[in-house]
Simulated scan of single mutants.
Amino acid sequence: MATIDQQKKLKHEQVQYIEFLSKDIVRAKDFYAKCFSWKFTDYGQEYTAFEGDYVDGGFTYGEPINGSILVILYSEDIEASKDKVISAGGTIVKDTFNFPGGKRFQFTDLDGYELAVWSK
């Protein structure tokens, strides 16, 4: 059951929770805390939940499977976000490019998951 604060954030048909597999949960937590200021709650050694401003999810211990879903995050300052990804050890796999709705870049995290960040 969602808490009252979580219920306020829920919107019909939004992506509400995303789970990742990670070979190293401590490393994943460090990476996403540095990049996007996600906060974590550990539930044992093999699971941690995260909360961001507009997305919640978790990391469970396991071998990452690349290429299943592209998670896209919004940024008000795409260059600052890209700098944080690089600084935290991420790899840019598609440099910033324009598309009809704005611009975005794609990167892989330390487990090889590919994500994107977009901006208007």
Score class of each variant (00 low, 15 high):
Met1Arg: 09
Asp77Val: 05
Asp95Thr: 03
Lys82Pro: 14
Gln106Gly: 01
Ile72Asp: 12
Pro100Arg: 09
Gly102Trp: 11
Tyr17Gln: 11
Thr41Tyr: 14
Lys82Arg: 15
Ser37Ala: 14
Lys8Tyr: 11
Lys94Cys: 09
Cys35Asn: 02
Asp53Ile: 10
Tyr43Phe: 15
Ile86Phe: 07
Leu110Met: 08
Asp5Arg: 07
Gly58Asp: 03
Gln106Ala: 08
Gln106Arg: 05
Ile92Phe: 08
Ile78Cys: 13
Thr48Cys: 10
Asp42Lys: 08
Lys34Gln: 06
Leu110Ser: 10
Ser119Gly: 06
Asp83Phe: 09
Ala28Gly: 03
Phe20Pro: 10
Gly44Met: 04
Thr60His: 14
Ser75Phe: 08
Gly90Ile: 00
Ser68Ile: 15
Thr96Arg: 09
Pro100Thr: 00
Ile78Gln: 01
Val85Ser: 00
Ile65Gly: 02
Gly67Trp: 05
Gln14Val: 00
Phe36Thr: 08
Glu63His: 09
Gly44Ile: 03
Asp109Gln: 09
Lys94Pro: 10
Gln106Pro: 13
Gln6Cys: 07
Val15Glu: 06
Val15Pro: 09
Tyr47Asn: 10
Leu70Val: 06
Val85Gln: 04
Trp38Ala: 11
Leu110Trp: 00
Gly62Arg: 01
Lys94Thr: 01
Gln16His: 15
Thr3Gly: 10
Tyr61Gly: 00
Ser75Ala: 12
Asp24Val: 04
Leu10Glu: 15
Leu10Ile: 01
Phe105Gln: 02
Met1Gln: 14
Gln45Leu: 06
Ile4Phe: 02
Asn66Ser: 15
Val85Pro: 10
Glu51Thr: 04
Pro64Leu: 03
Phe97Ser: 08
Gly112Cys: 04
Asp24Ser: 03
Leu73Pro: 08
Gln6Ile: 11
Lys82His: 06
Leu115Pro: 03
Val85Thr: 04
Ile72Leu: 07
Phe20Lys: 05
Ile86Leu: 00
Gly90Tyr: 02
Gln45Arg: 12
Val93Ile: 10
Gly90Ala: 02
Gly101Leu: 11
Val26Ala: 14
Asp109Pro: 00
Gly112Thr: 03
Ile4Ala: 13
Phe36Ser: 08
Phe36Gly: 00
Lys9Cys: 07
Tyr61Asp: 02
Glu51Asp: 15
Asp83Trp: 11
Gly102Phe: 05
Ala2Gly: 09
Leu110Ile: 10
Lys8Ala: 15
Gly57Asp: 14
Lys23Asp: 15
Phe107Asn: 01
Glu46Val: 05
Gly57Val: 01
Asp53Arg: 13
Gly101Ser: 04
Met1Thr: 13
Ile72Cys: 14
Leu21Tyr: 11
Phe20Glu: 04
Asn98Leu: 04
Lys8Ser: 12
Glu13Thr: 12
Gln45Tyr: 01
Asp42Ile: 01
Asp111Gly: 05
Asn98Pro: 09
Ala116Pro: 08
Asp53Thr: 01
Lys39Ser: 11
Val26Trp: 05
Ala28Trp: 00
Glu114Asn: 00
Lys29Pro: 07
Leu70Lys: 11
Ser119Asp: 08
Asp42Gly: 13
Glu76Pro: 11
Phe97Ile: 11
Tyr43Gln: 15
Leu115Val: 14
Pro64Ala: 13
Gly58Asn: 10
Val55Lys: 09
Tyr74Val: 13
Asp5Val: 07
Lys39Gly: 00
Asp109Ile: 04
Val15Asn: 05
Ala88Cys: 12
Leu115Ile: 14
Val71His: 13
Ile4Cys: 06
